[in-house]
Write a protein that binds this DNA or RNA. Structure first.
Lengths: 211, 211
DNA sequence: CATTGGAATTTGACAGTGTCAAGATTGGCT
DNA sequence: AGCCAATCTTGACACTGTCAAATTCCAATG
């Protein structure tokens, strides 16, 4: 009759998830499952309860590893920023191409990645995390470093005469990123419905930015 | 004891909202109250139940005038698009200024409006409405017309040599709007945290677009 | 080997949310 | 006066995030 006896009986037979009380690395499992959920249905579709179901654990188990839902999402976003930063490095370190070509392929990569990982992009650059200053300190640092790298690249491009040297590097980086982000958002959010001319849009943006 | 008797008693004294069963124009009251709520706490803060409380009506009263919450929000967004469209007309019809000046003040106006009405801007141009194709047909038409106007203006500016005439008008309109939208979003969503150099950003964007 | 302490996990509870179906109320028309 | 259709309310359901308290378990200590 006691709860204890019930549990022993349950264990002896079959536990639904096939796992017992303790897990291998629940934290990582939670992160992985969350990433899947984001990919499937976007940030909006992430529910701690469904996440728990998926991992085979109880509703509030995640609270032992993450302060709250926001903390979990920030962890995922940070992961994304690291990947993002590495990809940027790879693209711009490729010295085989001329700078203009590298920049063009950067824009194409940006838009392709943003659209193929729309929900993930939304998490990283969307209001869910940044609005109301809910971003983790750790996340703030990671993302700030990434942006600073981009500002530095912009400065170098100005020195090489690729960008207008009379503009402030910071402003130029802000506006050029703004352009890409704006296009990405309009496409991702479904405001621009025609996604069959993305390359043309990219080229048009490239022409404007490089003039 | 009967519910009916309770009601009569209640009416004879004071009804909390001061209104009885039927309202003057509940639909409009709901719209107005929703607008207030958006301004105060953003789209996220709009709850049908709190809205009902505010208007002094029961939880589900709004369902008689709007199919669901999305329908209500679309109505609000459409209202915004009409205002937006009128403002654009006003700015660009002002022939007293040179075209370049008009365009600069357009950008400034855009960013100022977006930031001062951040939550409303988010409603109009955010995923809440456009993602998953939940936008009302009526809203789609209104917003499409607005954008077409902008494309037409872009075409004229190309003819006047203000914009590069070799670019496709549609792409140019998409990218130039994308730039403004991107900056606005990054500021509104809290990704760009420094809002003390907005004018400089605007000018930098203007220089890039008009070159 | 038994006990116990602390980490890991679950259960219960609460205050929210949107929305549907069914009932209650009312003003206007015949 | 009576009824109808428009309008509004009540009840219910399935969700959500999060806190506090209870439970379970592993590991180290005596």
């Amino acid at each position: 009759m006691s709860r204890l006896a019930d549990k022993i009986l349950l264990m002896t037979n079959f536990n639904t998830a096939g796992k017992s009380y303790h897990h291998d690395d629940l934290r990582q499992k939670l992160i992985d499952a969350t990433r899947d959920m984001i990919r499937e249905g976007g940030v909006e579709a992430v529910s701690l309860r469904k996440l728990a179901d998926r991992v085979g654990v109880s509703r509030t188990a995640a609270y032992h590893y993450f302060k709250d839902k926001n903390d979990l999402l920030c962890t995922l976003a940070e992961e994304g920023f690291r990947y993002w930063s590495e990809e940027l490095d790879r693209i711009f370190q490729d010295e085989s191409k001329a700078l203009a070509d590298r920049y063009r392929s950067y824009i194409r990569w940006y838009m392709t990645y943003a659209l193929e990982n729309a929900e993930y992009y939304d998490l990283m650059f969307g209001r869910a995390i940044w609005k109301q200053n809910t971003a983790t300190d750790s996340l703030k640092i990671t993302s700030y470093n990434m942006f600073q790298k981009q500002v530095e690249r912009t400065r170098q491009w100005q020195e090489q005469g690729f960008f207008n040297p009379s503009e402030d590097s910071l402003r130029l980086a802000q506006v050029s990123w703004g352009t890409l982000h704006g296009l990405a958002r309009l496409l991702i959010d479904g405001v621009y419905t025609d996604d069959s001319h993305i390359d043309e849009m990219c080229d048009c943006a490239a022409n404007l930015l490089m003039s």
